[in-house]
Write a protein that binds this DNA or RNA. Structure first.
Lengths: 365, 365
DNA sequence: TTGAAAGCGATACCAT
DNA sequence: ATGGTATCGCTTTCAA
């Protein structure tokens, strides 16, 4: 009820109130080993609660030389792909008694770099990068340097999805998943495809498109160059992409593959707006298996990624002892294509194709 | 390239490298007033960049007695309702040079309390609570006490949506929005309703149901008690709720109102699984206007809330000077029903009804 | 302007 | 087991 802006009560105040030394108070409140007389301990606890004391984490961090925070960088938090991963990271952190701070790159590699720089000041235990990685040379270099400095000071770095830098990674098999999807679709009887992909520098997008194309190629099928459109990695990007495809003419196309679910869902609406009914007039497939694909009509065929687990794994990888070098592989890791020297530190997450109503058996129309 | 775990370079190192005093280095790197000789300043900057220096934010916080962080508490980050609000908070924070830390209550009021307690240690500038507020007495008391202690130490507290505690609030007009929706639906010709709501203690759920019911009541319409089911505030809760309704028998029901979009979307799938086609056999309406409601079939009628702006507003409210007491009202604030002494500190966010294909004109069937 | 030194809040080593 | 005190990295008087 007191409304005056009192200054925060410090450990010193608590010690005084309890009639013990600063050191004892500290030990009673935090010290791991229970080396403190129970009577004293009670007095300290009582004093703390009476004064409504709350440990100053910053001061604690300075004194201990380490924090309890995890920095998570995502591309866009309102995208279910990222928010599901974030949920996993947060869950894992909570369980480990860590606090997560979250930043958004808005899918800008420039911003990603700035964030890493700023975040370093926080001295987090871990930095997890789940933003979409790009393959721009100069950017990669600067980012790598910053992260290396962070690691050499004891921090841990973990990437999610594909990347080309020498850091721990929770690798999502984008290529293999897309390839498997292509094979299943061919088996269903489809032979004429179109695709909506993300910008060229986006590794996730290019890997998926490459996997899909290669899968088709193994059956001698090719996607005509003008049947591949590029758009923003978002719902609206998918919508616009679909319109573009229609404008270019896709009368002979049986199935449209969008490199992620959000785009696929946007594409469905785009097609529908042009009088083309997904699942009847044309088939659609996406990638990610986000929650909502079950609730759109028709339900979307896609490649499933255990996103929440990806987030949990990222944290687990970060927390595991530094010298553990044995690769842990979740799932079958099909086509993981481990490459390079640091591969053994990677965790591969398996993907699986999920066929739904958006790709009915046997070619439509 | 150096792989040895060097200890972080400190300001001291930078000062030494630049051949200036600690104080000067500090001023050159952070000090607001440009009271430092430009030649020195350059040397310090050069030294800092050469050594790859990064300010230790914890130490800075201890010395200055204040941090640059914002603590955001949400119910469930993978729920688009929360992630959209979070996006707004993050955007606003970035613009203000603040870092946001994010925690999840998993919709547990117990957990919410624990989080607030833990978060206080962080000494954030602001704590924003967007988790669903509950009306449980004991919990409210403990929470209020913790928050009050935080405020009296200079922190700012902001609630999002409805609440019953004396803190700044970005108020979402749940009651008014639902009431307006009911009126529009009645105007469309609907007369027989069912509802799927959240647990009793959830203010958001009860306010919306109350608004909806009152809207109907003003036209002499009532929802039969056994046509109101309760479920989890999630997609699956909506799905289950729909099944429950069907089991109870809803042959005479023309429209189902779910208290949020995620539940409504789940309900649509639930109904469909029982052979009842939403938009044709029965109408559906939700609340929130999350992104995906435009992409489900039929598109969902709902009450729109500018979620991203809600997040931005929450931060703006938190950052505004302590003594500003004038109420800022965004939008028309229809039915905002400002009440109590602290109301003038509130910001009301207007909601608006959006009619879509899930509620075709004139009663169906 | 610049530098020396006194904090900020907490931890941990070292005696007692 | 407990208390005194140096220390952590940085900011900020206070003199010079």
């Amino acid at each position: 009820m007191t409304d005056q802006r009192t200054s925060p009560v410090t450990l010193h105040d608590v010690a005084q109130e309890a009639g013990v030394s600063l050191a004892t108070a500290s030990r009673a409140l935090n010290g791991s080993s229970r080396t403190v007389n129970d009577a004293y301990r009670q007095r300290v606890l009582a004093a703390a609660s009476k004064l409504n004391y709350s440990t100053n984490l910053s001061a604690q961090a300075v004194a201990k030389g380490s924090t309890t925070s995890v920095a998570l960088i995502v591309g866009d938090i309102s995208d279910p792909y990222f928010s599901s991963i974030a949920a996993g990271v947060i869950k894992g952190s909570d369980d480990a008694g860590l606090i997560v701070t979250m930043s958004v790159t808005e899918r800008s590699t420039q911003r990603e770099l700035e964030l890493v720089r700023a975040l370093r000041g926080q001295r987090p235990r871990v930095i997890i990068l789940a933003g979409s990685r790009s393959s721009e040379e100069e950017h990669q270099g600067a980012l790598a340097q910053e992260l290396q400095a962070f690691e050499s000071n004891g921090g841990r770095v973990v990437f999610v999805s594909q990347h080309e830098l020498p850091f721990d990674t929770v690798r999502i098999d984008n290529y293999g998943g897309a390839r498997a999807l292509a094979l299943e679709l061919v088996a269903l009887g489809y032979t004429r495809f179109a695709a909506i992909t993300g910008e060229h520098a986006l590794l996730t997008a290019t890997d998926r498109l490459a996997g899909f194309s290669d899968g088709l190629a193994s059956h001698g099928i090719m996607i005509a160059p003008d049947h591949i459109v590029t758009g923003a990695f978002t719902r609206d990007g998918g919508y616009a992409g679909a319109l573009e495809l229609v404008d270019r003419g896709i009368d002979d196309v049986e199935l449209v593959f969008a490199v992620n679910d959000v785009m696929a869902i946007g594409a469905m609406s785009g097609l529908r707006s042009r009088g083309i009914e997904p699942g009847r007039d044309i088939a659609i497939a996406g990638f990610d298996d986000i929650q909502t694909v079950r609730d759109v009509t028709p339900a979307l065929t896609t490649v499933s990624i255990p996103l929440f687990e990806v987030g949990e794994s990222a944290l687990a990888v970060a927390l595991r002892p530094r010298d553990v070098g044995v690769g842990v592989v979740t799932g079958d890791g099909a086509g993981a294509g481990v490459a390079g020297a640091s591969a053994e530190r990677d965790v591969a997450v398996a993907t699986s194709v999920v066929l739904r109503a958006s790709t009915p058996g046997i070619a439509v129309r």
